[in-house]
Simulated assay, not measured.
Amino acid sequence: MPMQAQEIEDLLRESFPDAEIQVGGHDGVHMSAMVIDESFRGKNRVQQQRAVYAALKGKMDGANGDLHALALTTKAPE
């Protein structure tokens, strides 16, 4: 079942309540997200992206995941 942008943002907001979050895409399967959060400071890009995937609580897991592709941008605030 495809996911709406608001559903993705809500999941991310649970783990990153103070983050700047922008979610885009309209087909519910191929989406994009930008997450800017202080918790990313000092972490490399892989660590940041793993934290975001964990926040999605399995929605991208394997062929049965609700979300097939997520173009992801992560960083700490400037």
Rank of each mutant, 00 (worst) to 15 (best):
H30R: 10
F16W: 04
M31R: 09
M31W: 06
K43Q: 10
D27H: 02
V23R: 10
V35F: 08
V29Q: 09
F40I: 12
M31L: 13
S15Q: 13
I36Q: 09
F16N: 08
A19R: 14
E14K: 15
F16T: 11
M31A: 01
S32M: 15
R41C: 11
D27C: 13
R45L: 14
A33G: 00
E38A: 12
S15E: 13
M31Y: 07
Q47E: 13
R45M: 11
S39I: 10
I21R: 04
G24A: 08
E20R: 15
S39C: 12
Q47D: 03
R13M: 12
H26T: 14
R45N: 10
S39E: 11
A33Y: 09
H30K: 14
E20I: 15
G42M: 00
V35T: 08
A19V: 13
R41P: 05
R41N: 11
R41A: 15
R13P: 13
G42F: 01
G42I: 02
M34D: 02
S39W: 08
F40Q: 00
S39R: 09
K43C: 04
R13Q: 14
E20K: 12
F40V: 10
H30N: 15
D37C: 12
V46W: 00
N44V: 08
S39Y: 03
Q22P: 06
D18E: 13
R45Y: 01
V46P: 00
F16I: 08
S15V: 10
V29W: 04
I36V: 15
E38F: 04
A33V: 01
F40H: 07
Q22T: 13
R45A: 14
F16E: 00
G25E: 00
I21A: 01
R13E: 09
P17N: 13
S39K: 10
S32P: 09
G42K: 02
G24P: 10
Q48L: 05
H30D: 14
Q22K: 14
R13D: 11
Q47W: 01
I36H: 04
D37N: 10
G25A: 02
Q48K: 08
R13S: 12
V29S: 10
F16K: 07
A33Q: 03
S15I: 06
E38C: 01
G28D: 06
K43M: 06
R13A: 14
D27S: 05
G42Q: 00
S15C: 14
D18N: 15
A19Q: 11
V29G: 03
G28S: 02
G25T: 01
R41E: 14
H30E: 13
E20M: 13
I21Y: 04
V46C: 01
G24S: 11
H30W: 06
A33S: 06
D18P: 08
V35E: 05
E14F: 06
R45W: 00
M34L: 11
E14S: 14
E14L: 15
D27G: 03
N44E: 04
V23L: 06
N44A: 07
A19C: 11
H26C: 13
V29R: 04
V46N: 01
R13G: 09
M34S: 06
H26L: 10
